[in-house]
């Protein structure tokens, strides 16, 4: 029971922490001049953080993905990029290729 409470307490707090940044973004973003340099900077920071997030999820993953060698994870990304371009910029094809590489490698590692 207290474990459940702790879990939901954490989930409610996590939801608040998540919305906090979104609300902050509205408060600041509504006041900026969309042609100004400060706005450009915020947009660039957003793209840079997202790229960093992708790199972190691929290069320094948490959990069981760590069982998959870094070379395989990078190879899966390369396969995704190659397939994406080859199939006329298809997100679906690119994602499928990466998932196939990881699934094949994982069934080797995990048995």
């Amino acid at each position: 029971m207290s474990a459940e409470l702790g879990l939901y307490g954490a989930a409610v707090a996590a939801a608040a922490a998540t919305y906090f940044w979104r609300g902050f973004g509205v408060a600041v973003g509504g006041r900026l001049d969309p042609n100004g340099l400060l706005f450009e900077w915020f947009a660039a920071v957003a793209y840079a953080i997202l790229a960093a997030l992708v790199v972190r999820l691929v290069v320094f993953p948490s959990g069981e993905l760590r069982e998959i060698a870094l070379a395989v994870r990078l190879g899966a990304c390369a396969a995704a990029l190659g397939t994406y371009v080859l199939f006329g910029r298809s997100l679906f094809a690119g994602c499928f290729a990466a998932a196939a590489v990881i699934a094949a490698a994982a069934s080797g590692v995990l048995g």
Binding site: W21, G29, V45, A46
Partner: peptide, 12 residues
């Protein structure tokens, strides 16, 4: 935290 600059960039 990325949600803050993302929201800022989308609002205008």
């Amino acid at each position: 935290m990325r949600l803050a600059p993302m929201t800022v960039a989308m609002m205008p």
